[in-house]
Nucleic acid binder design. Structure first.
Lengths: 192, 192
DNA sequence: TACATATTGGAGCGTTCACTCCAGATCTGC
DNA sequence: GCAGATCTGGAGTGAACGCTCCAATATGTA
């Protein structure tokens, strides 16, 4: 939507403001006015660049997820451990944004079909990446088994992530490492 | 708050209406007016019986969770499998209410400190019940190990529940059974 | 029956807030 | 430096909605 340089700069100012405010107050806690005031622009400028308040929020979440991607180019060089680490990093280091992500993906995705479909799509892509990494590490692993492993691992990570955001004292990294070790082990030797 | 018979009946009508509407439209999607219209009462009657719209929603979620409890009396007779089954039943059979539960616990709990604290408390209670059941089944299991097992298992179940609500084709029961088998097995033989 | 207490409906209050509109300023390619 | 597109602020719109208030009525109790 932005074509001129000033427009692109304004866009960045708005995204920074949105990131700051939404991190602190959550999606519902932030008004459009707060964002435009913080960015030093009028509402008209905002709507010249974004379709809605939500669109700006989606954008900052997207950027935050992309920032921790261990293989942004999609070259297939990431290991299962890389992916788990990235997930943990996102949940712990990008805490406030991770909160927003879950608020949107779970809180809204379960109610709004459009957001739900979007969430499901990105979930499926993530499962596939986890499964691919698992098969690279253990070529004897069948596609179906790898999918189940990936689905289970991701489910566990998501649950741990939620707990970690609810409980500041929760040590997600340790739990995630144990989870990865167990999940992988149970594939090598299905009944220990 | 209700003392007279008519009040108790009104309370039930309001809860039924809330259950119906909120199941269909989500918490934010339902207005107080919709609830009172559906229940055939005025706003005054509603507020005579409930502190807020939210209070009524919490109540129906509480009742739905209680309804699947395999050991409501807390006699310590439930097995790990019972608890996993109850969780799966809640997520699949009570689908619409489970949606509301997650919407509140995750979507709101991560933003509103009061709801967050409440969610964390019930999470801790649930971890304890899972851990107790695990130790009854395997008395050699240490308390710390049981807690880790419970925490991990619950995290996985939560993640699977979210996926199951997002993806109608997802077979949660099968994944949960596998998860239980693997989690338990990995404790008996930590490194397969 | 008389009295205290509970219940009732629903008008309306007070507020919030995303978004529209548009005239004028600014930009960029030619 | 001109034309046409883009960008700008911010007043204003319009709708939403949780909750209060209270006089009238119903209920239970002694």
């Amino acid at each position: 939507m932005a074509r001129y340089r000033v427009g692109l700069e304004t866009r960045e100012r708005i995204l920074s403001a949105t990131r700051r405010l939404v991190s602190e107050l959550g999606v519902e806690g932030v008004t459009l006015k707060a964002i435009t005031d913080e960015a030093g622009v009028g509402a008209g400028s905002f709507y010249n660049l974004f379709d809605s308040k939500e669109a700006a929020v989606f954008e900052i979440v997207r950027e935050a997820i992309e920032a921790v991607d261990p293989d942004p180019a999609g070259e297939g060089t990431d290991t299962l451990e890389d992916l788990v680490d990235a997930f943990v990093t996102f949940m712990t280091d990008a805490g406030p944004i991770a909160r927003i992500y879950l608020q949107l993906a779970v809180g809204r995705g379960l109610v709004d079909p459009v957001i739900g479909a979007r969430t499901l799509r990105s979930h499926r892509r993530r499962v596939e990446r986890f499964a691919d990494a698992a098969r690279r590490q253990d070529p004897t692993l069948g596609r179906a088994d790898a999918d189940v492993l990936a689905e289970t691992l991701l489910a566990g990570l998501t649950g741990l992530g939620i707990t970690s955001l609810l409980d500041p004292g929760f040590h997600m990294a340790a739990h995630a490492q144990r989870l990865l070790a167990r999940t992988a082990a149970s594939v090598d030797a299905p009944r220990g």
